[in-house]
Structures are given as structure tokens and as C-alpha cells.
Simulated assay, not measured.
Amino acid sequence: MPLGTLERSAPPMFKQGPSALSRLLLYSALALFLMVADARFQITGALRQVVAAVLYPVQWVMLQPVQFIAQGSGYFQSLQTAQDDADAARKQMALMSQRSMQTEQLMQENARLRQLLDLRARLETPAQAAQVLYDTADPYTRRVVVDQGQVAGVELGSPVLDEKGVLGQVTRVHPFVSEVTLLIDRDQAIPVLNLRTGVRGVAYGDPVAGHGGGMELRFMPSSADIQEGDLLTTSGVDGLYPPGLPVAKVVRVERRADSAFARIYCVPIAEVQGARHVMLLKPMTEPLSKLPEPVSPPPGKKVNSK
């Protein structure tokens, strides 16, 4: 019998293993179970950190051509553009010098008021510098990745600032990098204070406002004294952000008769779309283990309950 007429594959009765459809259903069920378990119990947190640590050298190598091209394009700027940037920098330096003198005078006045009111002086918040590497790949969130992580002492929930104001908050920490959720993310909220009126509120991220995203001051009554141009700063009531940091500016106020609350749209002070260098602050909240223990009265001495 010619060899070409022989069947080269094994007969169906000798085939072993599950079918392709059975394996597809099994792997799909396993993947769904792992996603639900990770969302509820965070079982892959340690694995995610290990993978991030392993992939960090690859990410660093892949970013080098991008940084080289960016540096090359900046090197070949025209002389006129460099002179314009220098003039703008001088003007900004003069303006910052004037504001610094005013701030020093206000700080002295505040120090005298604290002494009169017998308030303790505010402690300076420790901070460290970081550089923005890239935006995250998730199109439904507004997050960036910075080049500082657990090795550098970054803590979860650390406030992030640029040279103009609050940029966001650290929401995920890896060994060498950290993820920062920007103020314009829909899941981000920050307690604010109206610098003109002293009224407190909460500003939420609004990624669809405008072209680059904005913020919305919610749950403010229609009769609230708020105007376009009001500056919103951190109130400090959450125990996380230091008070007095610039957050946003009110750009539009809509008061409707069919609603008890006003629609207040704001724009962040910080450069949420183009920040390159940022500062990571230590969270103000202290662990309960560091709080002083209550002093018990000496034995035999009665405590006056009045």
C-alpha cells in the first residue's frame, strides 16, 4: 500500500486531554475568579509589587529613547525662543520676589497672632522631589507615575504638589515608582476652603470638564456666597493635606431654580497636564501608636469630674 494513503494522525479513540472548548471555559472561569478575588481581597498586591520591581529596568530602558528625543528637541531651540523664555523667567522671578516679601510679612503677623492666642506654631512638613515619568495606560483614570517609591520612603496617601499648587495624591506605591491620582480624576476628592469667605467644601474631580479636565465644588447651596475667581485652598480638616495650599479657582457658577444646590465649576491651579517635577509631602495623619498615652492620676488622688 502506498505511504501517501496512510492516515498520519492518531485515531479519535487514542486522543487524550480535554477539548479546546472545555479548556476555554475553564480558563475563563479561572480568570473571572481571580479578578473578583483580587478586587475583594487584594490577593495579588504582593505579586503586583514584585512584577513592578522586575519590570522597572525594562521600563527605564524603554524610556531612554523618549527622553533622548525630548532632550534633543530642547537642545535645538532657536535663540529667539530661549531669549523669550529668559525674559518670562525674569518677570516671574520679580513677581515671586514681591509675593515672597508679602508672604514673609503675613507670616510674621500670623506668628504674633499665634503667640497672642497661645497656639503652638505649625511644624514644617517633610517633602521630597520626584519626576513624572509617564501617564498610566488606563484611559478611564487620570494618573501619572513618578520615579520615587517605597525605597525612597514614599507613603500611601502622600499629597503631591508642583510649583503652583496641589497636583494630586499618591494612591499606589511600588518599590521604585509610585502612582499619583490627579485632582481631575473622577474618584478624587479634596476638602477645600474659600479664601475670600472662609466657607469649607469638598471639590471633586471632573475629567470631562473642558478639554483637559477640571473640578466641581459639590453640595454647595444656591444661596452660598461664592463668585467666579474665588481661590480655593486646602482646609486641613482631613488631617492629610496641610492647610493653605492652592487647589483651584472658580470659573463658573450656575444657580438653577429647580435645584437646591449650585453647580460650581473650578479649574486646578497646578499643571495637571504638563507637570514634570513635583514634590511629595508626608501625610499629616500620625499613626495611633505614636499618639501620647493619657496620663493616669496618682493612686489615692481623686479626679475632679467638674
Rank of each mutant, 00 (worst) to 15 (best):
I43W: 15
S73T: 11
G201Q: 05
M93F: 14
V50Y: 01
H277N: 10
T125N: 09
E104K: 09
P299S: 07
L32H: 11
P139I: 00
F261I: 09
S9H: 13
A137D: 12
T141F: 03
V208I: 06
L133N: 06
E163V: 02
R200M: 08
V267F: 09
E293H: 09
V66Y: 09
V247E: 05
N304H: 08
N304S: 10
V145N: 04
S296E: 14
R120T: 07
T285D: 12
S235W: 14
V160R: 01
V36I: 13
T234S: 12
Y56P: 00
P139H: 01
A94K: 13
R200K: 11
Y265K: 10
E228D: 12
H174T: 09
G236A: 10
G198E: 12
P283C: 03
G212W: 06
P18Q: 09
K91A: 11
G153L: 08
R218T: 06
L183F: 14
Y27S: 03
A37P: 00
L32D: 12
P243V: 10
V208Y: 14
I264E: 02
V61K: 07
A39R: 13
S73E: 12
Q227D: 07
R196K: 13
V202S: 05
Y140S: 08
D258Q: 12
Q227M: 05
K164E: 07
M1Q: 08
T181W: 01
L47G: 06
R99V: 06
L95D: 10
V160W: 00
G300D: 07
F176K: 11
L183G: 06
L291T: 04
A53H: 05
L95G: 07
V54C: 06
S22I: 13
L217D: 00
Q77Y: 05
I43P: 00
L217V: 04
